[in-house]
Design a protein around this nucleic acid. Structure first.
Lengths: 220, 220
DNA sequence: CGACGAGGTAAACGCTCGTTCAGGAGCTCT
DNA sequence: AGAGCTCCTGAACGAGCGTTTACCTCGTCG
């Protein structure tokens, strides 16, 4: 078999010819999102992206310095918005770590259901960026994880959580990673075809998280 | 920037020049595993793989029909072994669904810690295979998920689990996916550098799973 | 009206890819 | 010794890649 012509979508996504009066930069960004999500950064060509929004290869370089920079542009904006969303959810949830954890998970899951294409790309394609940019994204991911670790450790201090222990000691970082993995990868399989709505998914995952960390009852 | 020369590893992995007396097919398989895990299937070239085991490009085609078939070969064998491992763990765990769930999760997590390179490739690179082969792998994944669903539903029948409900009803498939996502993606970040051993990871994840599904106590 | 710049086209460049193939080295058999 | 294998080499192939370039087509404004 020689070079593959068409690759099956890595995840289902709506296909549509882009650009209905939108400024071309936006059309390119959105077409790139679709294509990267469906088939993965390295196999999507500049020609593919530009054809999807009715332009030709060369026109990309009127708007972005390179294919790499296009990827960075869409990943970085998505990631920044996710970080902001998580922080907001927690600060608006009041003082109780149980409410904070539930709010965090709900917001995080809802977003990964609704914007699964964007989430998918941001999570899967970082590796193609150069070192400095990858470091920037990873900092943001660590920040999100640390928000979660913070919630867990406050809940533990106040005796509201009793998470599993290993040799009598908790490992909050690992627990936070486990919870995040669970919520993040909803974007790999959740689709409008499923039985559960976004809100139902959010509620289910929040409940599982509360149980995992042994949250004392009487909660929101 | 033109075509990228070197890409940062997507995940840390030991690098070593392969082939110490092993038959070349084995050396190729193992070199391919390393490289696919570190940098991803589409950007790893046939030349890369063969250089890593001290041969030249052309020699690949004495052992595999194509680069595609090499990928299929290593993914399929890994996946088959995972399926077998999961079934074994459950049947050896006796009759109690709580013990079955714990045994399943322990085996699954331990394996994804120990063989994280293999797990990573099998999970991330399926998309590059052709339709028939991808269907085969997905069947195996579904089978594993259904083992988990079976455990949950037996536990529910016997009143040993009380999982979260959505509008008064459980969704065992979604719960099973959530648990599997959590355990699978350990392979993305777990490393020998971490505080927890494989067994400790397995124990922690098993405990989280039992709590998530509301397993009644007196267990293991 | 004519200059100008923004933003498009399509050919071309240099490179790398997966794969093929003619040739050769090193075995084991007879 | 030499035929017949198994396996490897290294050049070659056609194709596709990201990017550059020369040119074209507008709408705007002095």
């Amino acid at each position: 078999m020689t070079k593959r012509k068409t690759v099956r979508p890595l995840v289902a996504a709506t296909t549509a010819i882009e650009r209905e009066g939108r400024p071309p930069v936006e059309a390119i960004r959105s077409a790139a999102f679709q294509q990267f999500a469906e088939r993965g950064y390295p196999v999507v060509t500049v020609r593919d992206i530009m054809k999807a929004c009715g332009l030709t290869q060369g026109a990309l370089y009127n708007h972005f310095r390179s294919k790499d920079e296009l990827l960075h542009d869409i990943i970085a904006s998505t990631q920044a918005e996710l970080e902001r969303l998580c922080l907001n959810a927690v600060t608006e949830a009041g003082d109780d770590p149980r409410a904070q954890l539930a709010a965090f998970v709900r917001a995080y899951v809802r977003r990964h259901c609704r914007l699964r294409v964007e989430a998918l790309v941001a999570n899967r394609e970082i590796g193609w960026l150069d070192d400095k940019r990858v470091a920037e994204i990873r900092r943001s991911r660590r920040a999100i994880r640390d928000v979660l670790v913070g919630i867990l450790s406050r809940g533990l201090e106040r005796g509201l959580f009793s998470p599993p222990t290993i040799d009598g000691q908790e490992d909050l970082k690992v627990m936070a990673m486990a919870l995040l993995d669970q919520c993040t990868h909803v974007s790999m399989w959740y689709g409008p075809g499923g039985r559960l709505s976004e809100d139902q998914m959010a509620a289910l995952y929040a409940e599982m998280a509360l149980r995992s960390v042994g949250a004392k009852s009487q909660t929101n």
